[in-house]
Nucleic acid binder design. Structure first.
Length: 275
DNA sequence: AGCCCATCCTGTCCGC
DNA sequence: TGCGGACAGGATGGGC
């Protein structure tokens, strides 16, 4: 499931390659994106001949800017993939969008097995701005003081649910919230109001550290995730709790990793050293 | 206010 | 081996 580090890796990879590429053709291979966003078909014609001018990320959202206020707004949700492939590479039934570029041997593909993700073609910045405005701050740019204020606003909420909430902090999902809370030594169900200042500081520090390390490792590949080059990440090797139910805790060597549904998600933690 | 649950979807895995 | 059900989860929306 692509979260901030995976999306960041994809964006960096695309940025290095497709800036300046001219769109020759956009091919939608399935109808589900049209149902999610009927405008997709209507504005398609405006994209021909336009050049990619920017690739960026906001939370888990990917934004590709083209000349003349045209954008692609892409969310990979759980199983979405966005990558460059050679034109002659086979297209399977889960590829929903292909973008052919003028004079380029590679095309951009959007593939999504579960069809939760989306690819919107936008003319004008309105929807993009609206979506960005609904997201909380970027965790890697967040100052400690502002982080503390956010948590003080929701004293009754569970630590995990705050980390997962895109309106509060943008980009963290189920894997990284568990890994952050493990490294901070905090149980996912702890209420914000019960956190001592030094505990909150630990969460803040580990949030930055885990996300930075994961980006350096090009994300976590649990099942479907690949980057824009079609390559897997390495950070799953550094996971301490996620998907490790029943395994001995590598930190305290006493607890066994427990799995429990918290904040509506499978959550993994060490019952001994997470307090 | 905050949590839970269902929903969207399909591949995978487990038990019978 | 084969079938059916549970499960995975990002975001959203409704109910309690």
């Amino acid at each position: 499931m692509p979260e901030l580090p995976e999306v960041e890796t994809i964006v960096r990879g695309l940025k290095a390659r497709i800036i300046g590429w001219e769109v020759k053709e956009i091919i939608f291979l399935s109808n589900y994106l049209k149902n999610k966003y009927p405008e997709n078909k209507k504005v398609l014609k405006h994209f021909r001949g336009k050049k990619v001018s920017a690739v960026s990320r906001r939370g888990k959202m990917i934004m590709v800017g083209l000349d003349g206020e045209l954008h692609w707004l892409i969310h990979l949700k759980m199983t979405g993939q966005l990558y460059l492939a050679r034109r002659n590479e086979p297209v399977d039934k889960h590829v929903h969008v292909r973008v052919i570029f003028k004079g380029q041997a590679e095309e951009l593909r959007f593939r999504d097995v579960r069809k939760f993700g989306f690819w919107f073609c936008l003319k004008g910045p309105e929807l993009k701005n609206k979506v960005c405005a609904s997201l909380g701050p970027e965790p890697l740019a967040l100052k400690y003081h502002d982080f503390v204020q956010l948590w003080q606003k929701y004293p009754a909420r569970q630590a995990k649910s705050l980390l997962l909430d895109q309106k509060i902090i943008a980009g963290i999902g189920n894997i990284y919230s568990d890994e952050i809370l493990f490294r901070a030594g905090i149980r996912p169900e702890r209420r914000a109001r019960t956190l001592k200042p030094e505990e909150l500081r630990k969460i803040y520090f580990m949030m930055k550290q885990v996300l930075r390390e994961a980006i350096a490792q090009k994300g976590s590949s649990i099942s479907d995730y690949i980057d824009s080059y079609g390559e897997r990440g390495e950070f799953q090797e550094k996971h301490r709790v996620y998907g490790k139910e029943g395994k001995r805790c590598q930190r305290c060597k006493r607890g066994f990793i427990r799995r429990q549904k918290i904040a509506g998600r499978s959550s993994y933690f060490c019952p001994v050293c997470q307090k």
